[in-house]
């Protein structure tokens, strides 16, 4: 099996430029085309261990990261995200190429993968139990996901929970996107972790990506059953507090964080009802990542 790091930088850039590059993210196959010189370089850091092909082949989505036109390439240094030739977003600075790729891919899955119920949530697994971390942006979801992933939990996704019709969590293992002060926090706790370059002044502030752990990538096609739904909330200086959340309330909170609940119609409702019926829901307030991680470890352990 060919992985991205096996391909030389030159061959990777060449394959991307000519539209022959394919990336496997678990069951998802992408065609990625780009002629931005820096993009394949950063890509190798973040996606080095993923299996890929450099001689074309089938794909689910075709994505391109390229300058919108000649003027913007040479003068403004802008780039734009394209899915099948359509441009859903405005151009951004060329230095944000990788952040744009991740946003674009999130958008792509959220807008098209309606074979899944899609929830805005990180997904991890430990001892066979799938755990959803569902929260609005800014509540520390990705930071907690990064901490757990670097402490031996298996990462399935830091952003999107994909629930299929059998109520299994389908992995979509990708780099964890960390913002602003979380970047330093995780870096100081895990000095061995290698980050992608920092993208400053994006519309979400500064962003750096942490590559997914090798084991999570290797098991990127193994689904997990949802056992816990956790609503984390980071509050500066707060003591650890955990509270069980009722089924109805959990469902309402998940609907708020769903990309396509209404698109799925009655099957979306059924899937969600089964999810809150079979998984325990908890709210957790914390200020210390150690306490939060231990609490979640215990939660899974006690469940047996």
């Amino acid at each position: 099996m060919l992985t991205v790091q096996d391909v030389s930088g030159r061959d990777l850039a060449e394959a991307m430029r000519h539209g022959r590059f394919r990336l496997d993210i678990g069951r998802l196959r992408l065609k990625i085309k780009s002629d931005i010189p820096r993009f394949p370089v950063v890509f190798r850091t973040l996606y080095g261990r993923y299996s890929c092909a450099v001689n074309g082949g089938e794909y689910d989505f075709d994505i391109s990261i390229a300058p919108p036109n000649w003027l913007r390439r040479h003068i403004a240094c802008n780039i734009v995200f394209e899915l099948s030739g359509e441009r859903p977003f405005l151009p951004v600075d060329a230095g944000h190429a990788h952040a744009l790729f991740e946003w674009g891919l999130n958008w792509t899955i959220g807008s098209f993968a309606h074979n899944y119920l899609i929830l805005h949530s990180a997904v991890l697994e430990t001892r066979g139990a799938g755990v959803l971390l569902s929260a609005v942006s800014g509540s520390g979801k990705s930071t907690l996901a990064a901490e757990l992933a670097l402490s031996g939990w298996r990462l399935l996704s830091d952003e999107l929970a994909l629930l299929d019709e059998k109520l299994e969590l389908i992995p979509c293992v990708r780099p964890v996107s960390l913002k602003n002060s979380s970047i330093d926090l995780i870096q100081s706790r895990h000095p061995e972790a290698v980050f992608g370059p920092l993208a400053t002044n994006t519309h979400k502030g500064s962003i750096a990506h942490l590559p997914a752990p090798g084991d999570s990538i290797r098991r990127g096609s193994e689904s997990a059953m949802p056992y816990f739904i956790v609503f984390p909330k980071w509050i500066d200086g707060a003591p650890l507090r955990m509270r069980a959340v009722g089924q109805g309330q959990a469902a309402m909170r998940l609907i708020d964080q769903s990309f396509n609940y209404s698109t799925l119609g009655s099957s979306g409702f059924q899937r969600l009802a089964e999810l809150v019926g079979s998984a325990e829901a908890w709210e957790i307030e914390y200020s210390s990542l150690d306490e939060a991680r231990n609490a979640l470890d215990e939660l899974v352990e006690h469940h047996g």
């Binding site: 069951r27 689910d60 309606h114 074979n115 698109t263 119609g265």
Partner: peptide
């Protein structure tokens, strides 16, 4: 591998029709 994309498109069009 292609069934997913097609099913997803059907779900979308059913929602659109509603």
């Amino acid at each position: 591998c292609h069934r997913g994309s097609l099913t997803a498109a059907l779900v979308h069009s059913a929602a659109f029709r509603r």
